[in-house]
């Protein structure tokens, strides 16, 4: 046999991450079910659930919320927890670089995002007037992915720069402001002017605009794309910095 290739190592780490995460089902259910339940309880009973445009936007917003939950908790808190364990130090003595491990994490998170989106899409399809023509499916998935990149980088930054407790506190205090402020729960056209101005500076708002316009097939605002790109560069740099400075725990 030969030295494992980077592909074999990536597949190895993806399987390992996935298995380890799925063995604690309650953690998976907690992060993946909340967006679907929000749709079921807060959107389905409302009159606007029967308006195709508004219902589709509501489902798209909650889809971003699902992505953000996985990013902040699976990546943010999960990475911080792993780093505190001696097992993580052991993994760093194995002949594997950061790329297969990070890719494994990324793919595992992606799998759980998909698992979380399945009930959400089913509920939106069966119980609301939301529609998404097949022709816009790929564009919507791409928009969701693009909206998720800065959130992923934010999670990685939190995970690699903070202790478990601090990561939990930061993730929780970021989740709700980013969700409300980004218009994931209440559509931004209901915001007062000052809130809308703040909202436009948030990565979640830019991502939300991108995904909602992708589902509607309308043109996306250039400012949203710029804002998302800016956040991607900023959080991406922070994530690389946090990963590089990490040497396991801060004490011996």
């Amino acid at each position: 046999m030969s030295t494992p290739t980077i592909f074999r190592l990536t597949s190895l780490h993806t399987r390992y991450q996935f298995t380890e995460t799925i063995r604690v089902p309650i953690a998976v259910i907690g992060t993946t079910l909340f967006p679907s339940l929000s749709l079921l309880f807060f959107v389905v009973p409302q009159p606007f659930a029967q308006d195709p445009r508004q219902a589709t936007a509501a489902a798209a917003q909650l889809a971003i919320f699902a992505v953000m939950t996985v990013c902040l908790f699976t990546y943010g808190v999960g990475v911080a927890e792993d780093r505190a364990l001696p097992w993580d130090g052991y993994l760093r003595t194995l002949p594997v670089g950061p790329l297969p491990r990070l890719t494994g994490r990324l793919l595992t998170g992606l799998a759980f995002v998909v698992i979380g989106l399945v009930p959400l899409v089913l509920i939106a399809w069966l119980a609301t007037a939301a529609t998404l023509p097949i022709s816009r499916l790929a564009m919507t998935a791409a928009a969701l992915l693009a909206a998720g990149v800065p959130l992923f980088a934010l999670g990685i930054t939190i995970g690699y720069s903070l202790s478990t407790r601090a990561a939990m506190a930061v993730a929780q205090s970021l989740l709700m402001p980013l969700a409300f402020g980004g218009g994931l729960f209440v559509p931004p056209n209901m915001f007062p002017g000052w809130l809308d101005a703040i909202s436009r500076c948030l990565p979640t708002r830019a991502g939300r605009d991108l995904v909602v316009t992708a589902t509607a097939g309308t043109d996306v605002a250039g400012t949203s794309v710029l804002m998302l790109a800016g956040w991607t560069v900023l959080t991406g740099s922070l994530a690389v910095w946090a990963y590089r400075r990490d040497q396991g725990r801060r004490f011996r």
Partner: peptide, 21 residues
């Protein structure tokens, strides 16, 4: 560098094995 560790073996220092695996 990961490639330098291909001929290295280490123990887990405390009993820090992933409990669910």
């Amino acid at each position: 560098m990961a490639a330098r560790r291909r001929r290295l073996g280490c123990t887990v220092q405390e009993t820090g094995l992933p409990p669910t695996l």
